[in-house]
Design a binder for these strands. Structure first.
Lengths: 182, 182
DNA sequence: TATTGTTATACTCTATAACTATA
DNA sequence: TATAGTTATAGAGTATAACAATA
């Protein structure tokens, strides 16, 4: 425990990794993370997120700032015109307070309209403006390319397996956590 | 386009979703997101993250605040004792400046030691303290349970397919984005 | 009383740029 | 000049709690 450099040289490589010397200096090993689904889920999600954002920014300078989260909001409103912010929050798994600044931003960009509903004067009916629909079309094109790239990487046989696994993880773990009332 | 409530009632359901009426009111449809790998990657990752954090908090009140990111840092240091902060950043895909507060926190908790190296006086050699090793053991137990739960959800045949797919996504999309110099 | 959306506030995670001390 | 780590700062994303308007 006294000689750090020495310990660095004498790391064992128990499971699944090539036993290298000086690995800490050259290329750190992942240890137990190397075979962790949770860890790789995070890496893949981050990479996917960044790739989508990069694709959007590259294809349309105006759409800068329309990250995946905004795309999801626009797509959900487009698909469910007239829905309320609370419903949108439930659909996207966010608190209603989280959506206020998001919708402010989207309304300020002229992409989303908030109309008071006739029935319940507390809530807003959310719809896309013309500009919002056109922005969504452009984002959808990027999303389509992105999805095709993911499909290409994953491969046609693995895709349904991957989707089913992701759905099961989200559904079953999501029940336990975070779904309290939101 | 004038009657929002009417539009809400007349949504078509092109691909893969049950054609429901009043869906915006009852249960918003996901539209193109329903079959999106990227979207489900995000949902699954968030659920996994929350489940891990919840498990840690439940099993050990002292470990509150040791989220998955901290676990990864501890595991990487344990596996690569003596590595520098820059190397740790590269291994975990974060900028070095991101790690400064993280390591401050872990050092303050008495879990990580930063020793000046003999060779290069600019860098620190990172190691776990006794407390750090014991904290990592407890976290690893939670991580193990978490991984087993993921395995159970995914199923034994799908697991290697899922891992391979996640690796490919992270590796191939990660190359294009975000890997500039970090 | 309960619910919709807003506000105030705070916390986490992340990054860039400028700085220091070394190299 | 270049690198290791820190600091200052900023921004995105998230949440909780309290509030006003409405139900």
């Amino acid at each position: 425990m006294s000689d750090v450099a020495d310990r660095t040289r004498s790391i064992a490589a128990p499971d699944g990794e090539p036993p290298l010397q000086d690995r800490a200096v050259e290329a750190p090993g992942l240890g137990p993370l190397a075979d962790s689904l949770g860890f790789h889920l995070r890496l893949a999600q981050e990479a996917s997120f960044a790739a989508f954002a990069g694709r959007v920014a590259a294809s349309d300078p105006d759409a800068a700032g329309l990250r995946p989260g905004r795309y999801a909001v626009l797509a959900l409103i487009d698909r469910n015109p007239g829905l309320t912010q609370t419903a949108l929050g439930q659909a996207s798994g966010r608190d209603k307070s989280t959506l206020t600044p998001v919708l402010n931003d989207l309304a300020l960009r002229g992409l989303v309209r908030r109309d008071r509903t006739a029935g319940d004067k507390r809530s807003y009916a959310l719809t896309l403006t013309e500009a919002g629909q056109s922005a969504l079309r452009r984002l959808s094109a990027c999303a389509g390319e992105h999805e095709r790239e993911l499909d290409r990487l994953v491969g046609p046989e693995a895709r349904p397996v991957l989707m089913a696994a992701l759905r099961r993880i989200a559904a079953h773990l999501g029940e336990q956590n975070g779904s309290e009332d939101r």
